[in-house]
Structures are given as structure tokens and as C-alpha cells.
Design a protein around this nucleic acid. Structure first.
Lengths: 326, 326
DNA sequence: TTTGTAATGTCAACCGCTTGACATTTGTAA
DNA sequence: TTACAAATGTCAAGCGGTTGACATTACAAA
């Protein structure tokens, strides 16, 4: 591959001029720019990004750490983050932590070694913040992991409220809250639960909560818990689930056991992943503004330095009504 | 961040020695290695990967180009690829092309500028091969895009055959094939169709195929096509779908229109994405060996140079029987 | 003509690490 | 002792671009 030097030689200018054209817009005359452009295309030149980054001491990489790439919610996060990263001329370095703390640390170290412009973390390690020194900005999405790390989330409290209110409005008398994993979602998902509890209490009812120790991202893992829970509480006619997969599992279990949905049991999911619309019956859910969250996180990193990082940013959610609460 | 030089100074050796320790295992005495290790950890040192790659003229990046990150099949590809890439000390540079040819080209150019060790492409541009010059290996997964590009696929012909055979064995008399997009899957998905047709003909039946111009990755997009097709062919009692989402849509439509599944209509999907097990009824499908494919692709890149690249590699598929054909 | 300014050129150091060539030191086997 | 090998050191160029400091050139305005 051609180098800057060769381009300069072919265009009859010096490397300095070529470099200036690349880095200081407006400093080089249009005529010269034209000549250099020609030389570049003749040689099929692309600046070596490694050299460039080395020299500038910062790359155009943005690291994204997610616990899973396969889970639909995070897949959406990846999709959106990639879109905004690329749209701004940056590149995505994807890291899948699988919830392993060690992996998260290793990824951080790796990202540091690559002089990334910033990192977006959608994984959960609480103590990461304290132990990692990083000159680049770190953004946490969907959960608050440290007072020192800027968080960008959706309005979980309200999401929980909306879900519960919707079920009440639909006539449910006994509404449960099923969570797919307290540990994982950390402080934020518990806000959803709080929202649910607030509303239930405001209507003079008793909250009924079933928490699972850890999130089981992939399908078919909640079945046993659901079975136990439903048989212990046969009077439930409404359920708020902390994610859509859990909701789907619940519906699946109900249908398989002679409980009609939404007839006897109405279900609200959370996240609004593609599955929610596709399921039969389609699932009413709380739509997370993944796109807004990702755009904000990416742009915060890109404009870091000229703009301060807010310690936390919250985007609104909305309820999408579908068949499961019809 | 500390540099090699500082580490060397602290350890009382020269940069050459430190570099040797890093790059030529066994060349430095254990005692010295120990001293250097100590210095490194004292300084919290991590070699600057950019400098390293620049010097070596190759990075440890592997580019992965997928059309979508959100589609469950590709999400699985991403997950598996990432796993094998990281397990080997490489890093994933994720590129989402959204089926846009220009983006694919741009990504290639970008990857080249980063001196990636290789690229795995799960996207479809046929002419990419001819127009891109690349010194690093390129692996195409799940489709053959050029005789010059090594392809690693699953046994699509057999997959199509197995699906059709399964339905016949279950007693279906009129079996259709629904495809989610000819263009996209290219030569390989049409192999699935061929497999289906072979089996149908071998049993003295007539193939009935419904193709869609383009893949609609995200849910809820096939509905109109399905409606038209099913009402034009009310006698269908079995369907082979070219992907699980299409299968889910079909089931959803059938259930919503008084057609029982699997009672009146048996459905086989393709890919075995998580959704297949989660759906109600769960979906019988052809399991794609995504893990094997990804592992092979990644290792081919990593060992490129010492091992030749096969022009094509095919892994077997298997049928996973679930409720939709019960 | 003088002067100012925009456009380039010249030179060279620097980013942090790698590596080849060759010299030196030290321990060990002959 | 001698000699060889292993372990390090020394030196310096190179990877490809960036950038600051200054010098030069050319053209336009005063």
C-alpha cells in the first residue's frame, strides 16, 4: 500500500503539505488539493490509521462492552451504537463480557492499549469504576455503576409505573412483577420494580414480586421459576415482566397450561425487542429508547473535551400496546 | 501511561531486552523476565498496541462484516465470532453493512487502513471480491461470493432436504417452500430450496415455492406476502421456511386466522435462533452450526500463512424437532 | 516599489515499539 | 585454561504520519 511519502512525490509536493491537507482543512490551496487528491486516487492511497493514531495518541475506536451479543436487547444496542459510531467516522471495537468481571477488566486494559476515544459499557461491574484509570471518557448505559461514571439510561421508574398502570386500567386485580435478574440490571431495573410497587400501592393493592438471582439472557431458562410461581399464585391475572423474553416465556407457559393470554392473564414485557411484535400473541411492552441512548453515548464520547459529561442522563420510555393485554 | 523505555529503565535493562521478552519467548532468562514483570506491574504497563502494530505492519484486529447486528442469526454469528476472536487474543472490529454495497466497500477500505489480520464477511456483495485488493485473508461465511474468496458454510442442500423429508414423514401432502430473500442468501440459500425440491420430486409431489425479493430481517414484514400466499394455496399442510423469523410469522398468521399449528399446518424453520425454542408453539428447525463456522473462520485467519485456505468448507446441519411439526 | 499574506517547502523530532547486526559479559563444559 | 553458548547490551534505522519552527516564493494591495 502506498504511503504518504509516495503520494507527496507523485503530486510534486512535500509530505508536510499532504499531511496538512489531511489535517488542517482550508490550509492548502484548492489547486494543490486537487493534485494531491489525484495522486491519492492514482495510488489507491489510504492513510495508515495505526500510524496516525500513534502519532496523535488517540484512535478513532470506541469500545463497547456488552454482556451478550445474542440477547435481543443488547443486539439492538450494538446495532444502534455501531450506526452512530460509524456515522461519525469512528469504529466499533466490540467486547462481549458474558458477565465475567475478569473479562471486563481485560477488555478495559485492551481498550486502553488501543488508545480508544472512549468506551461505552452496558455491563455491570460495580467496582470497575474505582479500579480502572482511564483518560478517555466512559459512559455507562442503562445503569448507574459509579458516581464517577456518566450514566445514560431510560426512565425505569416510569416504565415500571406505566406497565402497572396499564394492567390496572385493563382491569387486572392481582398483578405480579417478575424480574429476570436483580444483580444484572443493578440499580436501574430495581427502579422498574419500584415504579410497579408505587402504582400497586397507590391503588390499594399488594405488590407481589418474584425475583431471580441472575439474568438468563437466552430463552428457555425461566420455565421452572415461572411454573413454581404461577402455581403458588393461581389468582394472578396480570404480570409485569422485567424483559420481553421473560414475558414470552411466561406466555408460553401459560398457553401451554390452559391459561389464556390475554383472557385470563395479561402480560406486559419490557424493552420492546423485535420478538415482542413477532410473538403470538404479540406482547405489550415498554419501549426503551435504545437509539437515543446510544446516540447520546456515542456523541458524548466524540465531543468529549468540548462538552462536559453529565453525571446522568435519562430518556423517556413509552408503552407499546399489543395483543398480550388486549 | 508508561512506555517500554520506562519499564526498561526501572528494570535496569535495555528496551531491546524488554521487547525481546515480549516477542521472543524463551530468549530472556527467567530472572530477568521476573525483574521486567515486576517493573511492568509497578508501572501498570501495557504495550501500546498501535505502536506495536505499526511496527509489525499487522494488527490483531479481525474485521467482521454483517448485514445486521439485530437479526438473531447474525447476532449469533457476532457472539460466536467474538468469542473465538478474543479467545485467541485478537480483537473484533464490527461492521454492520445494512446490505449497502457502498458501506461494504468503505468498511473494507477502513479495515485495510487498520492492517487487520483478516476479515470475515457475512454480507453479500458479489463483486466485492474482484474490486478489493487485500493482502490479509478474507473468509466468507454462509455464502459463496467469489471463487477467490474462501467460503465456510453449512450444508444447505441437506438442510433443505431434511426439512422436506421431516414434513413428509410427518404426513404432509402439500408442502410449500417460503424464502425470505433470494438475493441475500445468494447461491447458498437457493441450495436449501434445491434440497427441498429434490425431496418433493423424489416423492412424486410438485414443489411450490414462494420467493421474496429481499430479506426482511426484522419481524413483522412478511405478513402481507404470507397472507396472499396462504389464501392462494389453502391446501398447504406443511411449509419449509428459509429462516426462523419467517416461520414465526407464518405461524403467527396461521394461528391468527384459525389455522392450527401443527394440527392443520406444520412448519419447519431454518437457523435455530433462540426464538425457535421460545416461540409458542416452539419451532422445528434446521440447526446451523454457527459456532463451528465461526471458529473455523477465525482460526483460518489466525493461522493464515502457515495453513492454506480451502476454497470452501462445509459443516453439517441437523434438524431440531419441536412443537411446530409435532 | 514596498509590504503583507497566503501557500509551500525544508528540516527534523516524535509517537512507542521492533529488529537486525554486532559487541560484551558470564557461566559452564571440555 | 580455553572455548563456546547463552544472556544482554549497544546502536540505530524503520513503521507511516504529525507537527512545530522557520524559510521561501509569489502575488496582490498599498
Amino acid at each position: 500500500m502506498a504511503t504518504l511519502k509516495e503520494v507527496a512525490a507523485l503530486a510534486g509536493v512535500t509530505v508536510t503539505t499532504v499531511s496538512r491537507m489531511l489535517n488542517k482543512p482550508g490550509m492548502v490551496s484548492p489547486a494543490t488539493v486537487q493534485r494531491i487528491r489525484q495522486a491519492m486516487s492514482d495510488l489507491d492511497y489510504r492513510p495508515n490509521e495505526l500510524a496516525r493514531s500513534l502519532s496523535k495518541k488517540t484512535s478513532h475506536f470506541i469500545g463497547l462492552i456488552v454482556p451478550s451479543a445474542r440477547n435481543a436487547f443488547f443486539a439492538k444496542v450494538i446495532e444502534r451504537a455501531e450506526r452512530h459510531i460509524t456515522a461519525n467516522g469512528f469504529k466499533l471495537l466490540l467486547c462481549v463480557s458474558n458477565h465475567e468481571r475478569k473479562k471486563e477488566f481485560d477488555y478495559f486494559s485492551m481498550l486502553k492499549a488501543h488508545k480508544v476515544a472512549g468506551v461505552i459499557i452496558a455491563s455491570h461491574t460495580q467496582d470497575l469504576a474505582e479500579s480502572v484509570s482511564f483518560d478517555a471518557p466512559i459512559l455507562s448505559i442503562d445503569r448507574v455503576i459509579s458516581p464517577h461514571i456518566s450514566a445514560v439510561c431510560s426512565d425505569n421508574l416510569n416504565g415500571g409505573r406505566m406497565a402497572a398502570e396499564h394492567l390496572i386500567q385493563k382491569g387486572c386485580k392481582r398483578i405480579a412483577y417478575l424480574s429476570g435478574g436483580v444483580m444484572l440490571r443493578g440499580m436501574n431495573a430495581s427502579l422498574r420494580q419500584q415504579g410497579y410497587e408505587q402504582v400497586i400501592r397507590e391503588h390499594g393493592m399488594q405488590p407481589l414480586v418474584q425475583l431471580n438471582r441472575e439474568d438468563r439472557f437466552i430463552s428457555m431458562k425461566y420455565e421452572d421459576i415461572i411454573a413454581t410461581f404461577l402455581s403458588a399464585h393461581p389468582d394472578i391475572d396480570g404480570a409485569v415482566c422485567s424483559n420481553d423474553i421473560l414475558a414470552a416465556e411466561l406466555i408460553r407457559y401459560a398457553l401451554g397450561n390452559g391459561i389464556s393470554v390475554p383472557g385470563q392473564l395479561k402480560v406486559v414485557g419490557y424493552d420492546d425487542i423485535d420478538l415482542a411484535a413477532l410473538y403470538s400473541p404479540s406482547i405489550t411492552t415498554i419501549h426503551q429508547p435504545v437509539n437515543d441512548i446510544c446516540r447520546f453515548a456515542v456523541e458524548s464520547i466524540i465531543h468529549f473535551g468540548s462538552r462536559p459529561l453529565p453525571s446522568s442522563t435519562v430518556f423517556p420510555v413509552r408503552l407499546v400496546e399489543r395483543e398480550s393485554t388486549g
